[in-house]
Design a protein around this nucleic acid. Sequence first.
DNA 1: ATCGCTTGTTGCAGGGATGTTACAAGGCCC
DNA 2: GGGCCTTGTAACATCCCTGCAACAAGCGAT
Lengths: 221, 221
Amino acid sequence: MRVLIVEDEMELADTVALGLRREGMAVDVAYDGVSGEEHLEANAYDVLVLDRDLPGVSGDEICKSLASGGSPVRILILTASTGIEEKVAGLGLGADDYLGKPFAFIELVARIRALARRLEARVGPKLIVDDVTLDPATHQVHRAGRPIDLTRKEFAVLEYLLLASGSVVSSEELLEHVWDDSADPFSGVVRVVMSRLRQKLGPPSVIQTLSGVGYRIADDR
Amino acid sequence: MRVLIVEDEMELADTVALGLRREGMAVDVAYDGVSGEEHLEANAYDVLVLDRDLPGVSGDEICKSLASGGSPVRILILTASTGIEEKVAGLGLGADDYLGKPFAFIELVARIRALARRLEARVGPKLIVDDVTLDPATHQVHRAGRPIDLTRKEFAVLEYLLLASGSVVSSEELLEHVWDDSADPFSGVVRVVMSRLRQKLGPPSVIQTLSGVGYRIADDR
DNA sequence: ATCGCTTGTTGCAGGGATGTTACAAGGCCC
DNA sequence: GGGCCTTGTAACATCCCTGCAACAAGCGAT
């Protein structure tokens, strides 16, 4: 886990950094806002521990620009002022959590951990082939990191193909396992779903056709 | 958040249940250990509030069997005996927290919240996605800085969606976690609440529907 | 190259799933 | 007890998923 601390009280910053490193985190420190922004541009941090009262570029500004820029960094604001209205204001700026000084070190660690955990999406056991991932639990499919919305049938077909892990699946087999009894073996439903699936997944093609045999997931390349 | 109370003092159980419902939780009650175990088997609870001194199946036994069964339920034990050694013993059984009677209701709520938070890897006072912020502590929701008035159910549904952090949540899952036993799985309550939520949140739409699959928070950007 | 078969694509209609609204029951506060 | 708010039910409207059918395109064999 990569953490950046932006805090002008050097002693406090160093102490916290030391403690976090002891917890196994990779920690960088910046003692002012400008330096902080440089670090943020240069590296991909998971969590930013940000003092609100900074000389130069204020914590608020950093916070706002990160939030408006769509940065995935989770922000934890540190501040001397513990008033509730301060708290609300800070969160309104796009921060994810708020901690008033003085704080217990354990609490800081716990909150950083929790923020990092929140960063990871809820993950189940996934099916992954190439750049395609399919999560049966949350019904989500990604291609090269981009989410793809599939209908139930499309999802079921893709799942079956992925489970076959590269071996060839015939139309009859798909009808047997993905459709119910009422499916007409003579209709071209499978062809239709395949077409729609391929359109949604986009190029390069993931599903190969073996004429006269069936379909399979392309696992070479 | 789904809570089960197992407590043989019916008056106390009902009072607590009422109070927790007022806090927006979905609460079921069992007045003895056997009934409690049945409930635990039938539903997916987030937190179990368990009286240690039960007739029939004791709280200790329930606690032990849950812990050994690897259940994800968080257990808060209630008891008349407040001695420290009792406390330690209770925690040794696999409980997550311990509260001696009599207790302040506020404290119970706070501890239940804390347990659920641990369970859901949630931290800090707010959940934030895009320009929507939700504060579990104060029951406040803001959209683009403007406060939005939600009912308990609406709040609970939105909270659940936000906690899923972009994952698809089915109606069944919502019924399971946000409503209690009395909910009719066949009714369209979820649809109605969604409609009211979307109206109150206003455009641009925050909640997406995947037909045949479920709902999710829009996490574009 | 042509024929025959298999596969891909697209428009369309039926039906199930979802959205919306009005209304009633119940709880809560005064 | 009265009035307000919340919650769930029911009815209706709307959306879109699904499968069918018709046609286009690909492939292999002669």
